[in-house]
Design a protein around this nucleic acid. Structure first.
Lengths: 110, 110
DNA sequence: AAATTGTGAAACCATTTGGTTTCATATCGG
DNA sequence: CCGATATGAAACCAAATGGTTTCACAATTT
């Protein structure tokens, strides 16, 4: 109960926090797959996988396409750009760190 | 009950999933601060903030330093490199996407 | 030495999360 | 039309999460 336009929470950070969901993203990067096929790769029920797929879809990380009676899912990478932007803010910090280390090593060599 | 060497779970993905914790990282990037000062920036009790600080510290994202009776926290950006590596795997996907879009637009202009 | 300040630990609580089983429904193959 | 298949929705559950209040204790003032 904070942001969001209505009641959804399409939070990329939350979506990728779960290891199963990260595996799902990896799996669905290369191939579009229906739920039953997907759930074959995971040690849990189809329903559980389905819920993870929904969370990822709500976060915009998957696109679902109905083909006959099956629903196929595919990676939709755009939302990861938000993560990339977030990360880039911190790049200067570890760059400073590495720079300091470099200076230290070089100084030590003299 | 999955991976981990003993019983800790220093999971960067999990650590940054919480918005409060992301704010903490941002706040502690520039200045090292003791808990009481930090908690002044957040609409929750000091204890709650303290717990978030612990989670971030366990994930390696903060370094704590005892100075007298206070504990000061500072950003430790290294673990974010794991995230960067994870993200870089997906770069090719959105690059393909953008490339396709570019081709489409250019074609449209002719 | 006594009062104050900074902090973590513990016990507790409501909500969310990740999972299950069961059920309803829509599509496909005969 | 009928049985099998693919799926989502619903009800339920145990554990994790994000918070709180209370307490103990070490370091600092006075």
């Amino acid at each position: 109960m904070a942001q969001g336009s209505a009641s959804e929470k399409p939070d990329v950070f939350h979506a990728i926090a779960d290891p199963t969901r990260r595996q799902l993203l990896q799996l669905l990067g290369d191939q579009e797959m229906p739920v039953t096929t997907i759930s074959g790769y995971f040690p849990m029920t189809r329903t559980a996988v389905s819920k993870h797929l929904r969370i990822l879809t709500d976060a915009g990380l998957l696109k679902e396409r109905k083909v006959g009676r099956e629903t196929r899912y595919k990676l939709e990478p755009e939302p990861l750009l938000e993560l990339k932007r977030w990360l880039s803010y911190y790049e200067r910090f570890w760059e400073n760190k590495l720079l300091a280390l470099k200076r230290f090593v070089e100084q030590d060599e003299n």
